[in-house]
Amino acid sequence: MHKYANPTFFMRIANAVFPYAAGISILCFAVGIPLALVFSPPDYQQGETVRIMYVHVPAAWMGSMVYGVMAVSSAVYLIWRHTIAHIIARASAPIGAMFTALCLVTGMLWGEPMWGTWWVWDARLTSMLILLFLYIGYIALGDSFEDQERGDKASAMLALVGSVNLPIIHFSVEWWNTLHQPAIRSFEGFSINAAMLWPLLLMVFAFQTYYVSVLIIRLRGELLSAKIRTARFNLAAAE
């Protein structure tokens, strides 16, 4: 455990993983996108618009999953004080926020032809919108301190507070939704067949490996900027 917490050792593994993750991601996208957008059958109810699902659903999953990664890493950071865990959380936040935003945009694009409006306060979309706010709050808090460590700890705690609240928020939004808007059609409303499942799974896998690849690139950047910071401190101290 502590061995993996050493940033140098951790990065050696991450760098070894990187070409595979990036390669698999490119491959999955190369096969998955044509399969999803051209070769998969249209839905009998939704027609061609169902193809947005191949981006929307993986993006939604990744948006939630990355927040989970952030929460777990933040807990590891706060309990065992492994800086690398926090760096993973901080590097993940913008990626997760982007997935969440992608989910919202594709949801709106899908909503226009299906619901006749760009935005419906559907329970899932609303939950994703709140998740995006949580991401933005996390990023803003981490950047708000002169003292880097203070920002690290505060944002790590916020990630934990957010992860405790997410299920409550989701539950209340769902409850609120059924109270005010009974029966609107959403993605859950159609039965998925094998011809749709395979491209979907491929896209999910492509998104996951994409996340891992971008995370590793961002980790390199974070560690380099930490090195620069230390070097500057030493310069000021030596003077």
Binding site: G137, E146, I168
Partner: peptide, 23 residues
């Protein structure tokens, strides 16, 4: 407690708390 010592106080606090206040 989380925003103590932050460069921007009030706006940041609203940004953190309002989503949590939704339920």
């Amino acid at each position: 407690a989380l925003i103590l010592g932050a460069k921007r106080g009030g706006v940041l606090l609203s940004l953190l708390l309002l989503p949590l206040y939704i339920p």
